[in-house]
Amino acid sequence: MFSISPRPGATLFACIVFSTFLSGIAAQEKLPTFGDKIDVLGAMGRTDQDFADGLALDLFSPKNRTLVVKQNTAPLPAQFVSGTTGSPFVALMNYSYIITMNETANDLIAKIEIPFDLGNLAAQGVNPSNTYVGTLAADKQSWVVNDANRNVHISENNTRIIKMTSLDGEFMLLGRTTVDTTNVFVQYGQGETRVVNMTGGPGIQEAEFVDGLRFSTQAEKPLRMNVDIVNGINPATMPANTQSLNSFAWVVNTSDPNVRVNSRVNVPFNRAMLAALKSNGTSPSQSLMVARRALNATTEKFTPIPRAQQTVNEQPEDRIAIQGLTQLDGQYIIMVV
């Protein structure tokens, strides 16, 4: 028996070749990180780009472009969310992504995908089905979510925004800590389960009640709000030549009426009831206004909110939008003029 010992030079050469091969693989597998410039294919070629922290961008562009993803370690707090219902929301990551393309691009077919960690979700009481990718609003006061463009891929532990035509913006992974996993609506009445909790600060929070009454509110301090339905409108409390569309008033009370707010309220109306009162076919835009009076008023007349603050949004929405309310407490009705 005998063995052949490899020549030292051959062994060294083999090691160098193998090391070079491994280095090539490592270079191919290295993923970009924050601040790296990413080339975007043109001619509607697919750019499918993963990043070192798990972010993934998938897009088609009609022309060659570049993009950069940066990290924002001090984003708007996660509790300020608009575009959906239910609360509270929490951040599922401690930073947000700011995506910038080298030029304005509104002609893309794109999606953004952010992974979530199941252990982190469990620790914060978030069901994977309640994960969202929020987009910072143009006014920077809320994270906007859109259920129509949202896709949760539970088998791959990620959440996406799909149907995007532009990628410029700021994005963050959010979670809603509710048991319900679809739209969440608030019930009228008193009690802890019927309270809307608002966080004081620079952002906007939204809440929608079971009939479509919706509040979008920025409050300077933390605030709690309940809304009741009170039946019975005394005709003597109506302005001259008007009547109430409904037989009830929405009664809004907060934990501190002195807290200054900036709120938009969308008040739903029933056009069938208007048709019953106005058989001449008068449109809601011509005949409906929201009026209010003090929270504990009994004989005080209702006063119309200035017309300039009201917009009647007809079908399919059928709601009256009231802008710029600085105080919420009071009784509200829809007035037929």
Score class of each variant (00 low, 15 high):
residue 16 I to E: 10
residue 167 L to R: 04
residue 165 T to P: 06
residue 254 T to V: 00
residue 293 R to C: 04
residue 80 F to D: 06
residue 158 N to Y: 11
residue 133 V to L: 11
residue 51 F to Y: 09
residue 73 T to S: 14
residue 19 S to F: 14
residue 137 A to I: 09
residue 22 L to Y: 05
residue 237 T to S: 09
residue 260 R to T: 11
residue 40 V to R: 06
residue 283 S to A: 14
residue 12 L to A: 14
residue 168 D to Q: 13
residue 226 N to P: 03
residue 10 A to S: 14
residue 55 L to K: 01
residue 124 Q to F: 04
residue 329 D to H: 04
residue 91 A to F: 00
residue 278 K to Y: 00
residue 222 P to I: 10
residue 305 I to Y: 02
residue 251 V to Y: 03
residue 94 N to M: 00
residue 7 R to M: 09
residue 95 Y to I: 04
residue 191 G to T: 04
residue 131 T to Y: 07
residue 176 R to Y: 04
residue 58 D to G: 13
residue 89 F to E: 02
residue 30 K to L: 12
residue 328 L to Y: 04
residue 222 P to L: 08
residue 310 Q to V: 00
residue 154 I to G: 08
residue 104 T to P: 00
residue 85 T to S: 14
residue 269 F to R: 04
residue 257 P to F: 01
residue 43 A to Y: 13
residue 102 N to M: 01
residue 181 T to S: 05
residue 211 D to Y: 03
residue 100 T to D: 08
residue 314 E to N: 12
residue 214 R to G: 07
residue 195 V to N: 06
residue 182 T to Y: 08
residue 115 P to V: 03
residue 312 V to T: 05
residue 214 R to D: 08
residue 224 R to M: 09
residue 36 D to T: 10
residue 279 S to E: 13
residue 153 H to M: 15
residue 227 V to D: 07
residue 238 M to A: 04
residue 222 P to T: 09
residue 83 G to P: 02
residue 55 L to W: 01
residue 312 V to G: 03
residue 216 S to E: 12
residue 89 F to M: 05
residue 280 N to T: 14
residue 162 I to F: 10
residue 178 T to V: 09
residue 112 I to M: 02
residue 41 L to T: 07
residue 184 V to I: 15
residue 247 S to C: 07
residue 62 P to R: 06
